[in-house]
Design a protein around this nucleic acid. Structure first.
Lengths: 138, 138
DNA sequence: TAATTCAATGCAAGGGAAGTGCATTATTCG
DNA sequence: CGAATAATGCACTTCCCTTGCATTGAATTA
């Protein structure tokens, strides 16, 4: 088992108290979060610090960005099955219209998409919108 | 052949000079445009007017909104094959990483996407990113 | 240990896009 | 024509993203 400290160091990210807290917050969350979500969770911290921390995590490929169509960027930890640094990896995200949460479905792959002649597909961003399991089950 | 005036009236949109110009601008553009694009094309007009005109077109279902992941909302005219008022219609858009343009591929349908048990899919937003035909052909 | 260096953090400010309230102008209808 | 309603223009606000710069803190070296 790898500690968070080891994980950060393995990705060339200097370990600080703030970064450990932010990582734990992301890990505990099952859904993708906005910067404001993180901001509300850590009222003591400055927004800029959170912003740059997320950017650092993104550059070091332990976090990836999600655009679910709400207009606000969301972030989620990369998992084992999430090879988002690889361009051909096909992301699938689910956005719930009821609870407004966005979930990363790493084990659901996207089928091959056909594009017209002359077009070169490098990346696919797919967001399915609807009702999530929590909201539909009640 | 239907004139633009007739088309607007058929959709319960009052005909004004501004609206005709904006419609023509959208029709002449092959790609989806941002509000700023329209703003730059009509420097005389106020941004609010353009904003509300697009909103009106959207409500009357002659324009649809596209979220291509750039963070800026884009708009495109609905065509015959574009039944975007129907929730089950599957939009497919192509975003060129080179020229930064977004194209509406109405004749390319999206395959059925499987979601986990308990999830209800209502809508699918799919953006393929890569190089468009113009940029790849040179 | 003390001094130096570089990264992380915090504060302030700016920019862009979306959206709203209200007055003014234009259009439609009686 | 005159009244009512819609469209337009102006001003302003909010929200999110981003950057510059000063300060703090950690690590490295003499």
């Amino acid at each position: 088992m790898q500690t968070i400290e080891e994980l950060l160091e393995a990705n060339n990210i200097r370990v600080t108290a703030m970064r450990l807290l932010i990582y734990k917050f992301l890990a505990q969350k099952k859904v993708a979060v906005t910067l404001s979500d993180i901001e509300n969770a850590f009222e003591k911290a400055d927004r800029t610090t959170l912003y740059r921390t997320i950017k650092t995590f993104e550059e070091k490929a332990i976090v990836h960005q999600i655009d679910d169509g709400t207009g606000i960027t969301k972030y989620a930890l990369c998992e084992k099955g999430c090879n988002c640094e690889i361009e051909t990896d096909l992301h699938l995200h689910f956005h719930c219209n009821n609870c407004n949460e966005t979930i990363c479905l790493t084990d659901h792959k996207i089928p091959q998409i056909k594009v017209p002649n002359g077009f070169i597909s490098e990346n696919v961003n797919l967001v399915v919108k609807g009702i999530c399991d929590k909201c539909s089950g009640e």
